[in-house]
Structures are given as C-alpha cells and as structure tokens.
Design a binder for these strands. Sequence first.
DNA 1: GCCGTTTTCGGCCCGACTGTTTTCAGTCG
Length: 572
Amino acid sequence: MNKKQIIDRLDTIAMYLEIKGENSFKVAAYHRAGLALENDPRSMAGIQNLSEIKGIGRSTAQVIEELMSSGESTVLKKLEQEIPSSLLELLSLPGLGGKKIGKLYRELAVTDRASLQEACDQGKISQLAGFGKKTEEHLLELLKQRQHRPEILPIPYMLEVAEQIARVLQSIEAVNRFSHAGSLRRAKEKMKDLDFVVETTDPEKVAEELLARLQIHQVVGRGDAKMTIQLDDPNHVSVDFRFATTETYASMLLHFTGSKEHNVLLRRLAKERDEKISEYGVEREDGTTRVFQSETEFYRYFGLNFIPPQAREGKDELELAKKGPLNLVCPSDIKGDLHMHSTWSDGSHTIEEMAEAMRKKGYQYACLTDHSRSLRVANGLSVERLSQQIRKVAEINEMYDDFTLFAGIEMDILPDGSLDYPDDILSQLDFVIASIHSSFTQDQKQIMKRLENACRNPYVRLIAHPTGRMLGKRHGYAVDVDKLIAIAAETGTALELNASRHRLDLSSKWLKKVQDAGVKISIDTDSHSLKMLDDMELGVQTAVRGGIRPKTVINTLPLNELKQFFKQKKPV
DNA sequence: GCCGTTTTCGGCCCGACTGTTTTCAGTCG
C-alpha cells in the first residue's frame, strides 16, 4: 500500500470517528497523522521509525504499520461495521458535520444522499431537535446541486483567481490596504479556498462593492467582521474576506495566514505568559489588548525573529526564531534569472526585450537559455543558430554597463540518455541547463539513466524542472529524487527550483534534502514571456517553504562570484 | 489520540456566523 493510500485510510478513520461523535481531538489526531506522513518527503519504505515523526503516536503508528503489512486495518474494519460507509460522503456537504450526521443516522436512519433526500421530502428533518425549516431547505438545495466542486485546487489556478480579486480590491476606494492570506500566502501547492484581509473603516461598503464587482455564485455568509462567497467560476472557488482596522490589520493578517499549527504554537507561547492571542491582538492579564503595526512587531513581542509566511508550518522554525534571524532566502537576495526563452525558440519576446525587462527588475544578470535542436516543436536552435545567438548575446552585452546577459542553453536530454549537443559546442556557453522534454512515460530506470548521464557531463551545470510535473495537470516522470540528489551532490550539478507557477519543481518538500546534501539550487522562472518573470517571487516563497538559505542558491551570487562559479570545473 | 527544558495527566486556539434557539450548539477556518 502506497503512502497516498495510507493517508486516505487515516482520513477515512477520522471521518468515521467524527460521525461516531468521538472526542474532536482524537479525530484531529488521525488527520494530523496523515498530514505528518504527507509532509515527510520519504517514501514509506524509507521510514524506519514511524512514531519518531511528530504527530504520529503509538496508536496511529500501529494503524499505519498494519496498513503497510496487510493493506488492512483492524480499527478501520471495526468502524466500517459500526457505521455505513455511505455516510462519509455527507460530510462533504457544507453545514453538515459529524454531530448532525450522527443524529440524522441514529434518529432518522439517514445513510446516504438518497435517504437524506427522502427525509427532507417527508419534512422529517425540520422536526428534529436542533434542526429546523431552514436547515431542511438548505439541505434540499445542496442535494439538488449534482456536481461536486473539487475540494482542493492547485496554486496556478488559485493565483489567477486571487490576482483578479486583488485588482477589484485595488479599485475600491473604501479599501485602505489588503493582502491575501491563508494557504496562498504560505505558497502551498494546493488549497481549498482563498483568504483576504482587508483594512477598511467601512466593511459594509467594501462588502457591497465586492458583491457588485465580482462574479458571485453564492454568498455563503456575511457579517460585520467577515464575508464568505463562492465565485461564479467553473470551480466555485470559495473566498473569505476578513475586515480589519488599522489597529487590528497586522494581527488579523498573522491569524488568517496560519498555518493553523503555527497559530496554535504561538497561542501556547502566549498562554505561558498568561496572555491570549486573538485575531484582534494580544489580550494581557489586565484585560487590555495590545495591537501591532506589523507582523514583525508581533513576533518581537514574543521574543521571536520574523518568520516568513511560507515558513509558518511547525515547531522547528519557531525554535529557530527564538535564537536568531532565520536567514532564509528572500526576494531581494535574487540577483538574476538563469532560465528564460526568447523568440529564437518558443518565447514570445525578443532577447532584447527579455534582457531589458530583467535589468528593469533590478537584476545584475540573466541567462538566455533557449531550447536545443531536438525540441522541434519549440523551434530549438541548430548548432549554427546557437552560434549566431552567442554572437547576438555578446552584442547585447555591449549595450549595458550595469547588466550582464549570459549565453546559455536549455538542452534536451534525449530518450536514449544522450545529450543534444556535443561537448565542443557546450564548451562555448556560459551556462548549460539540461532537461527532459520527451518520452515522459519511460520507466524509472531509464529516466534515471538519462538524468545521470546529464549530471555526469562536465558542462551541464543545472538540471531544470527535475521531475517534470505540471501542477494540477500531470505528475511528471518517474524520477527517484533521492537518487538524483545523490548524483547531483557527487557530480557538482545544481538542481532547479523552477519558479513557474505551473511547475514549482523541485517542490518545497525536496528542497531541504537538496540543501542538506550540499547541492546548490537555482531559482529560475523559465520565462517564455515578460509576465512570467514575476513568478520569481513565488519561486522564492517556495524556497522559503523548503527552508532554503541564500548561500544554497546560485543566483543569489553577485556577478563576479557567479562568473567564477561558471568557470569552476565540475568534479566529474 | 498526541504531547511534555515545569507536566506521563490534563490539556488541546479562539472567534464569527448560522440557525436554532430564549442563551446556545454546531460548523468552519
């Protein structure tokens, strides 16, 4: 049984327990155990001692071990006998939780959508204590909506939606400032909804304007402090708006950025000093509430250094923040972008336009890396065109004294493992990236042979988008990432953190391992247009999620040091 | 069920909103 299946089983157990009316902390414990597994980059086989993982204790470890060895779970089986499995799907209906479903089951023998429908039709729901006419109507409405909206949506999709909302918020006069919060601000790859914290003196007005200007499917809830809507887009994305004042803005942003776990830990810190954190600030023993200008000030109040949103996940970063600055990479560390395309291959802008945009961004340098000759669909460069391009890059460099454009290539690693240009061509380039763009479905052995061959070439400095995944679209090829990291370490090859919102590859969960192995990473946008340059920020956020320090990242090097790095021979 | 540089027992974040209620439970994040 693979990891994903095990996590699913743990969640299923949690859902059964919820309907059974078990202690909510017990329910949460099973969810947390699943989450802990998910956040651990190791495969099931690579995990020696389960209960060493935070969040997995004796009982959950036992369940997991049983699932691994037999594919079954005694705990789960017992629950399946007690409670009809068809009840689980009712949990996905908003407004129905474990307690209500349990009651419907015990008192009205509701077991699935059909019997729930029947109970509604017969008016039995509204007769039940704690239920009423409105609940019955609400349920009928939910049951009518056949199509389920996806529970979890990928970041590229959600970023687009968030950017649209941001434009609307920007145009509303009553809005002083705003920020996205929640999972998106923490740069999670998948999320359930969008959160915005909005500073205003007139929440009523802002809510009205939002309702007028956004395409709304449904207003889920609306009060003085918050509004929840579902957008009228194909996925009915759910969006929370929280209204803050100037005084509460920082606390509210912190609170709604989470993670939940991070908030719990902060509140625990506060509790030790007899203080209480809420989204409005810190309530002290004497009953007064302390408010903050910024999140930095908030952290400082508790003796902590600032923790960037993307690092707010667990306990480790909190401990580190007690001791000193976290020293994680930040946007201003990035001195250039080493992976981009021009109209010479499949980019939409000329080399000049790309270079100028990079320079305007404040970069010291950039590297042009069009596609190589075998990638015909992308108009890959023949040897001759590549030579022309190298000359072109030299010309462009003469235009600038404050910016350097390097000549590079994104070279295909061919299906048989050979490389798309011979070494004497590669030796003419400043920077060679190698990547896979074909035969994605090869088995792991062959994929690894290709990647290893590329790493062992003396001119290949970077493997781009190492797993080839596209978020929300495809999983990527069969890479043994652990092995790739080992090979990269041995050969002195860097691995990319492709910052494109569609890729984020390698993902944050692998990055720590890369850093620990002493392998360098390069955070690149792989831009095919000017707009895509802005994904660098997302790339840096992803690096922060992975705990990456500036020194690990090639393109934090100042120009001269980068030049030296390019000149260094690989140990292969 | 998990966890512990005070704790192996007793906590476990806390508030908004809704719908059901005359003061609160359930759900959600």
